[in-house]
Simulated scan of single mutants.
Amino acid sequence: MAEFERLMHGARTPWDAVVVEVTQIFGRSVADVAAVDHIACLPVPVRQALDEAEVLRDKLGLKRIVVRIGDENLWNPAWGKLVEPVR
C-alpha cells in the first residue's frame, strides 16, 4: 500500500515534492496537483490526482508526493496510508 506524507495546512510547501491537495466539492473528495514549477490543475477525483502526481514526480525528478488535507475524513484508505511527516 502506498504511503503519503501528510502536509499540514500552514506548513511550508516542500521544494522536493509534488503536492496533492484534497478538498471537498459537492460532497465528494477531489484533489489538485501542484509542484514548485507546475501550477495546480483543476480538481479531479483523488485517485486520478495521485496517479497524475506520480507521473509529475517522475517527470520533474522530485523525491516524493505529499498530501495536504484539512479533514482526514475526506481520505479513503483505499488510496493509501497518510503518515505524519518525519521530523
Rank of each mutant, 00 (worst) to 15 (best):
T13H: 11
R64Q: 15
P45G: 11
D37M: 12
L56E: 01
R28C: 03
V44G: 00
C41R: 13
M8Y: 11
A53P: 01
V33R: 04
P45D: 15
E54A: 13
V19C: 01
V30E: 07
K63G: 08
G61A: 07
E52I: 01
P45N: 11
E54K: 14
P43V: 07
G27S: 06
G10S: 02
G10W: 02
L42H: 11
L62D: 03
R12P: 03
A49C: 09
K59P: 01
A17H: 05
A34C: 08
A40Q: 09
P43K: 06
V19A: 01
V30R: 10
D51Q: 14
A40D: 07
E54D: 15
P14C: 03
W15Q: 14
I25N: 10
H9G: 08
D51W: 12
H9F: 09
K63D: 14
E21I: 06
R28G: 00
F26I: 11
V44P: 04
S29E: 02
V30P: 04
V20F: 03
K63V: 06
A11Y: 08
I39Q: 15
R57Y: 12
Q24D: 03
A49Y: 05
A35S: 07
V67L: 05
I25D: 10
P43C: 09
A11W: 07
V33Q: 08
D58L: 13
L62N: 08
V44I: 15
K59T: 11
V67A: 04
K63N: 13
A53K: 04
L50F: 08
V18P: 06
F26Y: 15
P43H: 09
W15T: 14
T13L: 13
E21N: 05
K59G: 05
L50G: 06
V22M: 00
